[in-house]
Design a protein around this nucleic acid. Structure first.
Length: 524
RNA sequence: GGGCCUGUAGCUUAGUCAGGUAGAGCGCCGGGCUUUUAACCCGGUGGCCGGGGGUUCGAAUCCCCUCAGGCCCGCCA
């Protein structure tokens, strides 16, 4: 069974309406790793719906979190905003300097990410955490947390092994300059927390407004209660023993909530580069990934892996393999012929679950996502056909599509071209049409092969220049040279692209043109 | 120091929770296919399940030890 379906089943036992959630701090560019946070929760949500369980999915943006430091992409002017909630500071411009403030820092990074999410079929209910503070929804939990301060302190100290300072307080008020840092709590008189900030200014924060926030470990536990969250997969950083998941559960109960069960997912790593981090700039953005990879394949990358396994994200040749695997499973779903062992059955169910959850539109027929054209075939066409119109013409001629291409295919081709032209496209998949017979090719061809090419050359010089005629010429040349067809094709590929195999030979030759082919084969 | 995850065929991995003859895909090799979509079909190759010990009639699976890789423990998915 797929992990999302398994989790849905567990949630069904818990009963009631399910609320899956994700939470991300918009401190910088979002990256591909954040997609796992999102998709882990969203797939469980979908699995719940598929199982007939009432469910919703919310994405909580940690917009109340303060700016921790001046990241590399920020100008030094951001120094003065350290400690300020991301929702209340201006977005950086392209030069890294604070812009005019028409967009907030949080919104600036969130916007493109939500756009990318839409493309992969994720439409969450977005909750800006600072608005939850502003609306007063946190107030009663803040009040409870303050009155149970010592119990919470004990939970955090015992479970995390961390020593909390004597003046620790479960609410960080915002000082006179708008910073959450360096503000000392002087007292509490519901609904006001009295404080003195680092400038020596005294003031008070109304817990019913966005005038401060709870520390992360309590904030998280409180929001579980506020939103009725029943499921929130968390990154392994939160999942470590004594981490915020472990303290969140008892704190949530203390605040009167019913916490979700602990679910931890592993991180996505870039092939050979270790974990990603927004702050080191070692990232592939979801937008960048989506400019290359079809969205259902991106979903499949997450869906096919068990939740507790690393994912090595590779935009090179592994992408072909993943796409192949996806397409194979879509076109040849493993059917239960009644003779499967229990294990094979489990594997088949898991795979079909992964395909189901990879669809951009929930419940869509997976065959539609492939659109009749394989990823590999499209990569070939995109390389040998300069114009899109020629690609569509070719696909019509080969019977892949009828008439105009559908929109999703147009987008796929555009993505394919971006990939091919970019730095991630694997060398091994590049088609380099040779101008003359290389020594390497000569080395690979024996007498029969050379004879074949020479016969082919003369046949091609006379025949009509079309796919079928070329195909026929190849057949005839094979017979004439007395070699198997397989060998004939291999000879063509050696001569043409320096490999023993390749895309359909006749259309390749047809596209390249008679003159160039004859000059290439002339040396045979 | 504390803890988590992983180690199964050349590669990616399923199977570990509920012990019962090690499965799959890719690759590779051979054959087939008188249009090769890098396709498809048939056959084949390939594993002391990281190592050692224990429990058991029986262990990839449970227990103990050990080695290796990755990661978490202020914030980070």
């Amino acid at each position: 069974m797929h992990w999302a379906d398994y989790t849905a089943q567990k949630l069904m036992e818990r009963g009631g309406k399910q609320v899956s959630a994700s939470g991300i701090t918009p401190s910088g560019e979002f990256h591909i790793g954040h997609l796992r946070e999102i998709l882990s929760a969203e797939m469980i949500h979908r699995a719940c719906l598929d199982a007939g369980i009432e469910s919703k999915y919310i994405f909580i943006v940690d917009s109340m979190d303060p700016l921790r430091r001046v990241y590399d992409f920020l100008s030094p002017e951001y120094e003065r905003y350290i400690g300020h909630p991301l929702a209340y500071i201006p977005a950086p411009g392209s030069d890294g300097k604070p812009s005019d403030g028409s967009a907030t820092y949080a919104d600036h990074f969130l916007g493109p990410f939500l756009n990318a999410l839409e493309q992969i079929g994720v439409c969450p209910e977005v909750v800006m955490n600072h608005e939850t503070y502003e609306s007063g929804e946190f107030a009663e939990y803040i009040d409870t947390a303050i009155s149970k301060k010592e119990e919470i302190r004990r939970i955090i100290q015992e479970i995390s092994g961390r020593e909390l300072a004597d003046d620790w307080f479960p609410y960080n008020p915002m000082g006179s300059d708008g910073s959450l840092d360096g503000v000392t709590v002087m007292g509490y008189e519901k609904p006001f927390v009295h404080w003195i900030d680092s400038l020596g200014v005294e003031g008070r924060s109304d817990i019913r407004k966005g005038e401060g926030k709870m520390p992360w470990r309590i904030d998280w536990a409180a929001r579980w209660a506020i939103h009725g969250i029943t499921c929130e997969p968390a990154g392994k950083d939160h999942g470590a023993a004594g981490g915020s998941y472990d303290t969140g559960i008892p704190i949530c109960k203390l605040l009167g909530g019913e916490p979700p069960d602990k679910i931890v997912y592993e991180w996505i790593q870039l092939k050979g580069m270790g974990p990603m981090s927004s702050s080191t700039g070692l990232t592939i953005g979801p937008m960048e990934a989506l400019s290359l990879v079809p969205p259902e394949i991106l979903r499949y990358v997450v869906a096919r892996s068990k939740i507790n396994r690393h994912i090595e994200f590779d935009t090179g040749s592994a992408l072909f393999q993943t796409a192949d695997e996806y397409e194979r499973l879509v076109s040849n779903p493993i059917a239960d012929d009644g003779e499967m062992t229990k294990r094979q059955l489990v594997a088949a169910q898991t795979q079909s679950g992964a395909i189901r959850l990879s669809q951009v539109e929930a419940g869509a027929n997976p065959s539609d996502s492939v659109g009749g054209v394989s990823f590999r075939h499209l990569s070939m066409l995109a390389q040998i056909k300069a114009s899109d119109a020629d690609v569509w013409k070719s696909l019509n001629r080969s019977g892949h599509i009828q008439g105009a291409p559908r929109e999703s295919l147009v987008v796929r081709l555009a993505r394919m071209r971006t990939w091919i032209d970019g730095p991630h496209f694997p060398e091994g998949a590049k088609l380099e049409i040779r101008r003359e017979l290389s020594d390497e090719a000569r080395g690979k061809l024996d007498e029969g092969g050379m004879d074949f090419l020479s016969v082919l050359s003369s046949l091609l010089s006379e025949c009509e220049w079309g796919d079928e005629q070329i195909s026929e010429a190849i057949s005839n040349a094979c017979e004439s040279a007395g070699i198997p067809r397989r060998k004939g094709y291999a000879s063509i590929y050696w001569a043409l692209i320096g490999r023993s195999f390749g895309p359909k030979a006749s259309s390749l030759l047809c596209e390249i043109g008679r003159e160039r082919i004859l000059s290439l084969l002339g040396g045979a």
